[in-house]
Design a protein around this nucleic acid. Sequence first.
DNA 1: ATTGCTTCCTGAGCGC
DNA 2: TGCGCTCAGGAAGCAA
Length: 267
Amino acid sequence: MPELPEVQTVVTGLQQIVGKTILSWRELRSGTVLQHLPSNTSAQHLGIIKTVTRRGKYILITTSTQITVVIHLRMTGRLLMKNKNAPLAKHTQALIQFQDNTCLHFVDPRTFGKIEIYPHDQQPHALQVMGPEPLESAFNPAYLLALTRRRTAPIKNLILNQSVVAGLGNIYVCEALYRARIRPQRTAASLTLPEAKRLYQAIVDLLAAAIAHQGTTFSDYRTIRDQSGNFQQFLRVYHKNTCPEGHIIKIIRQAGRSSFYCPTCQK
DNA sequence: ATTGCTTCCTGAGCGC
DNA sequence: TGCGCTCAGGAAGCAA
């Protein structure tokens, strides 16, 4: 599933659409594109792409006509750059067509992904309450330790929460907790200062390494050139039978998701 | 305020 | 071979 490193890889790839003129968008599956523009705005004149950026797991595309296109891939969404008359893959839900005969395809089998079109001064509520970017200075050991005080939720649930820290999903949370040697079911408040420091460092190092390897392809994620990521070969606990030390991995259920951890290495 | 459960959806993998 | 069942999970919405 696309988490921060995968979304960052897509956004980096999408820098090639900056400067392109949008001709139109097409919604092939009803409900995929949510339009929040005033009713007197013509959707046919979306303008020229100015920027493509990332916030958490959201992709933000701004245009010369003061429009922001917000895309969330959820679990199985893909964005693929193709030429105008390229055949449509199964589950292609929407298309953004450019004047230069290229086209951005949004493919999503499970249909949880969304494209939202906003005026530039509006954005989804989730972005307004989103926590700091983990690779920026607002996210640091002191911030993480302060947030965990008086919180009874498991540490895993806390760092999955996008309003605590942006961009982490199930894979990187499991991996970060293994690298920090902390069990996922520990209450947040039970973390010590050294543990908070380890967790911070594990998150930062892990995300940087995953970005350097174009993300993790577990099932559906691809780059915009339809290539797999390479970080899956560096996973230590997620969907593994044993950790690198040879201990048997345990699986428990938390926040509706599978937690993979090593009962020996993680305390 | 915080926590946790349910819902959305379809393909893969499994047992029989 | 093919059927039916279970599982995968991000985030909104809601209940406690």
